[in-house]
């Protein structure tokens, strides 16, 4: 498996007001060989009540297909400003997406949840395929349709 060259550092994403402290995390998403075109992935965070907080990454550049990522689309109303500057190429079957970003300390161990929606052309939509809590210890999970694993540390 070849890690996708989508490694970048974000300093502004999800920096809550008044909370300057942030820690760098590396988020790795590996897709299985589902036998289709490149997958669109939306990575976003909700709070303890399940309300949308912000987006971490959007893999897939054509906003007209974002409504297939229905979890993200419902939360944001399809607002592309949510992913301005944090958008990259879709991720091919069997490939790995690795992103590095600075997340505010306040997001960890406070009931926040990371969600990954996935969609592939002419195949089923897979909203909220993976959810995992944000903890300082890191976490990993496996998906059900397209995603082999998601982990961060």
């Amino acid at each position: 498996m070849k890690p996708l060259a989508a490694i970048l550092a974000l300093s502004t994403a999800l920096t809550l007001p008044g909370l300057a402290l942030a820690r760098p995390i590396t988020l790795t998403t590996t897709l299985n060989n589902y036998g289709g075109d490149g997958a669109y992935l939306a990575l976003y965070v909700t709070d303890a009540q399940g309300a949308y907080v912000g987006s971490l990454w959007m893999a897939g550049e054509k906003s007209k297909y974002y409504d297939s990522l229905s979890g993200w689309y419902r939360m944001t109303g399809g607002d592309t400003r949510q992913v301005d500057g944090i958008t990259g190429a879709s991720v091919g079957a069997g490939r790995t997406l690795e992103i590095t970003l600075d997340l505010a300390d306040a997001l960890f161990d406070a009931g926040y949840t990371l969600h990954v929606d996935a969609a592939v052309e002419e195949m089923r939509d897979s909203p909220n395929e993976v959810e995992l809590p944000l903890t300082t210890a890191g976490a990993s999970a496996t998906g059900s349709r397209y995603i082999a694993s998601v982990s961060y540390k």
Partner: peptide, 16 residues
Amino acid sequence: ASTFDLLPDGAANPAF
């Protein structure tokens, strides 16, 4: 043109 978002034919979904 549609694929490159040059046309205003994107999804018009109602508010959730």
